[in-house]
C-alpha cells in the first residue's frame, strides 16, 4: 500500500513540476506549483514527518503561493510581452541544468539507505518529539528568536512610518 501511494505521489509531483516549467500561462504555472507542493507534503507524511508536512502546506502552498499570485497579477504578464530568448542562452541553461543533475546524481549514488536504520529515526519527525526538543532542550533559542522577529517588525515600522 505504502509503495503504491509513494509511486502515485512521485508521479504527481514530477508531472506537475514539469507542467510548471512547460505551461505558457503563468497563472497555470503557479497552480501546478501548488499541486507539486501538496504532493511533496504527502511525501513528508509518508516519511513520518508530520510537522514538516503541515508547515510545508501552510507556508509554501499557503503564504508563498499567494505572494506569487499577487506578483503575477501586478506584473500583468502575457504571451505577447514575453521576450524571446536567444538560442545561446537556451543552450547555456540546458548545459548548466544538466551539470546540476550530474552533480546531484553523483552525490546520490554514494548514499547507502541501509545506514538510515537508526532506532529514533521513525519518530524524529513527529510533532510530539519536535515539541519535546523545542520546548525543553532548545527553549532559549526558541524564545530568543522572537526577539529577532520583533526586531524585524520594529525595523519595518521605522523604515516605512510616514513623517508626521
Amino acid at each position: 500500500m505504502r509503495e503504491y501511494i509513494f509511486y502515485f505521489l512521485a508521479l504527481v509531483s514530477v508531472i506537475s513540476a514539469l507542467m510548471v516549467v512547460f505551461s505558457r500561462n503563468p497563472i497555470h504555472s503557479v497552480l501546478y506549483l501548488v499541486v507539486c507542493f501538496f504532493s511533496i507534503a504527502g511525501h513528508y507524511l509518508l516519511l513520518n514527518a508530520q510537522f514538516l508536512a503541515v508547515v510545508h502546506v501552510i507556508i509554501y502552498a499557503g503564504a508563498i503561493m499567494v505572494l506569487f499570485l499577487f506578483v503575477i497579477m501586478l506584473l500583468n504578464l502575457n504571451k505577447e510581452s514575453e521576450p524571446h530568448k536567444p538560442i545561446i542562452i537556451k543552450f547555456a541553461s540546458v548545459i548548466s541544468a544538466s551539470l546540476l543533475v550530474l552533480v546531484l546524481i553523483a552525490a546520490m549514488v554514494n548514499i547507502n539507505p541501509a545506514a538510515d536504520s537508526h532506532p529514533t529515526l521513525h519518530t524524529i519527525g513527529m510533532v510530539r518529539e519536535l515539541g519535546d526538543t523545542l520546548f525543553k532542550e532548545y527553549l532559549l533559542p526558541f524564545e530568543i528568536s522572537s526577539v529577532l522577529f520583533l526586531t524585524a517588525m520594529v525595523g519595518v515600522v521605522l523604515i516605512s512610518k510616514k513623517e508626521s
Partner: peptide, 24 residues
C-alpha cells in the same frame, strides 16, 4: 551553542541593516 551564536548574530545584523538604512 552554535545555534545561539547564530541567533545572536542574526539579531545584531538585522538591527544593523535597519539602522544603516534608517535615514530614508
Amino acid at each position: 551553542h552554535l545555534l545561539m551564536t547564530f541567533i545572536g548574530i542574526e539579531i545584531l545584523s538585522v538591527s544593523l541593516y535597519v539602522l544603516a538604512g534608517s535615514n530614508r
